[in-house]
């Protein structure tokens, strides 16, 4: 049963200290900025955040990092022209970084959401990012064993939801939203608009309601 929240503060009210939080978005496209702002107000700290990047500029994820709420980032591409908040924390030794190839990051969450206990990927074989991991040769090709990656909470951005919690996305703002929606205990979607059940074309639904716990228009 999906709850339609009155506001973003209600939607993140129970996020616990020490949580693993999956945050959607590729750069700012698809990033649920209002949910992150609510999480800052809510005060949860000692978080592990999983997101493709490590914040852009001073808003959204960068603002959460700047408040010192994040103990560890798991991401593929922290270093960008406007990642000064993360850069400063990392160079000061105030944040831990687990760097994961982008496809492996997505697939590890897909595996978690699909009940898969791990998978052998060719990506990263022979590199630092596969160091210490089990490898296997399958049909003449080399693979590295990767583990599922599950969150306590997922905060994602989508375009529209119906009152059951079915989600549709918009253009490349979709990115990590659908896979994160499958991989967390509590999934919260920030949308532009909540419509009545029946108003979304069932053929066009990308994230079915079974994955979605809370929806908030913001």
């Amino acid at each position: 049963m999906t709850t339609i929240c009155a506001d973003v503060d209600e939607a993140v009210a129970d996020v616990a200290d020490g949580s693993v939080v999956l945050i959607g978005g590729f750069g700012m496209a698809g990033m649920p900025v209002q949910l992150i702002d609510a999480l800052i107000r809510q005060g949860a700290t000692d978080l592990t955040v999983v997101s493709n990047n490590a914040g852009n500029g001073d808003t959204g994820l960068a603002a959460l990092l700047a408040r010192g709420r994040v103990r560890k980032m798991i991401c593929s591409f922290p270093r960008q022209a406007d990642s000064h908040v993360f850069d400063g924390l990392y160079r000061a030794g105030r944040i831990e970084l687990e760097l994961v190839p982008q496809g492996t990051l997505a697939e590890r969450m897909r595996a978690a959401g699909a009940g898969i206990g791990g998978f052998f990927s060719p990506t990263g074989v022979g590199t630092q990012l596969a160091a210490g991991k089990e490898t296997r040769e399958i049909d003449g090709r080399h693979y590295v064993l990767e583990a599922p990656l599950r969150g306590d909470v997922a905060l994602i951005g989508a375009h529209r939801a119906d009152r059951m919690g079915n989600l549709v996305y918009r253009k490349t703002a979709r990115n990590f939203g659908p896979v994160m929606a499958t991989a967390a205990t509590t999934v919260v979607a920030q949308v532009v608009q909540v419509v009545e059940t029946g108003e979304l074309d069932p053929e066009a639904v990308v994230t079915p309601s079974i994955y979605v716990d809370r929806v908030v228009a913001a």
Partner: peptide, 30 residues
């Protein structure tokens, strides 16, 4: 702002474009 490339720069869609999530995008590569 919802339509960007890998460098986070704004782009456009051509006729016949298709959108998909990150897991599918990297499954195409791998």
């Amino acid at each position: 702002p919802d339509l960007t490339n890998a460098g986070k720069q704004p782009v456009t869609e051509l006729a016949g474009a298709a959108y998909f999530d990150s897991a599918a995008s990297f499954a195409m590569m791998r």
